[in-house]
Design a protein around this nucleic acid. Structure first.
Lengths: 162, 162
DNA sequence: GGGTTCGGTTCACCACTGCGAAACATTTCC
DNA sequence: GGAAATGTTTCGCAGTGGTGAACCGAACCC
């Protein structure tokens, strides 16, 4: 969503509307005006005169907040796992496993669910899933992603925590 | 909670700790430094030199956000204990104990109540609850949560005070 | 005040189970 | 043919729940 720039307090009349709509907004505060007090994380302000890079940085922050945090990984139409302008190729089995994890990014996916997805007509052996998870882990590590085990519940895909 | 002022980028090394603890913080950005990119609503910055009233306004905003949006820990549908974008997995027994504590976050939960919840058909031994509380304590410590004992009353879950 | 009890903490140990990982064998695909 | 993908076996480790015992501080009691 686009950030709206508002001269403040001159264009104060705009503000109620923007706030109501949840539009991210940056108040450009005149040299003499008192600083506004905004609690809303989607509202920010900067005192004029201001450097261009500072304005852009605040706009970028508001945009990121409006986009609801961090970007999530996805599997594109070619079966590549993409995340933050990097990508890795996946084998067919890995693609299914990664798909299940990506669809519920940050939440647990049960082992049985993943097994049924990778092998709809029955998994080869119990251990097969483990091995493919291991290989998937190594494959996605360069992207800054990791698969965490939640014992007796399943697996969880998340951003690598160092 | 108090807002911490950090000279940036000089005192950058502080920042990881503050972010991890969820401490609201205002970065004082040197005249030549590039603007930081913080998505966290509990982090803000201002370029030096800055007017006093502007600094105070931003501090007040951070304080207000910290006071309002104090998130409470919760146990999600997968049995994970989540708190402020971090999580730990819980074993079945720990999950029940943590569940009782989370539901009455900040208030005392009696030992007998917790014991009945973890073992509806009678606790194994007197000591069992203690041991599981000990293990739960160690597990949730990384989240910044702690279980406090209220002697002869029960236990209480709260944010770590250190 | 000094011992005792009470409530709670911590440790060491055991049995059990789920999952990890290496190493090897096999198949598939270009 | 050769590389990538897949499957299998085996070994080991770490998480889990339970138990007994030592420990410790606070309250209680004579």
């Amino acid at each position: 969503m686009d950030v709206v720039l508002v001269r403040w307090p001159e264009e104060n009349f705009h503000l109620g509307e923007l706030r109501g709509a949840g539009t991210p907004r940056l108040l450009l505060v005149g040299p003499e005006a008192p600083p506004p007090d905004s609690v809303d994380p989607l509202e920010d302000w900067i005192r004029l005169p201001a450097e261009d890079r500072d304005v852009r940085a605040r706009v970028a922050t508001l945009e990121a907040r409006a986009a609801n945090g961090m970007p999530t990984p996805e599997i594109d139409e070619d079966g590549l796992l993409r995340y933050r302008d990097r990508w890795v190729s996946l084998s067919p089995v890995e693609r299914e496993l990664a798909g299940a994890l990506v669809e519920r990014f940050g939440a647990v996916v049960g082992r049985d669910l993943m097994a049924r997805r990778a092998w709809p007509s029955g998994a080869p052996t119990r251990n097969a899933l483990d091995v493919h998870i291991l290989r998937l882990r190594r494959r996605i590590a360069p992207l800054g992603l990791e698969v965490r085990t939640v014992r007796s519940r399943g697996y969880l895909l998340q951003i690598t925590t160092s």
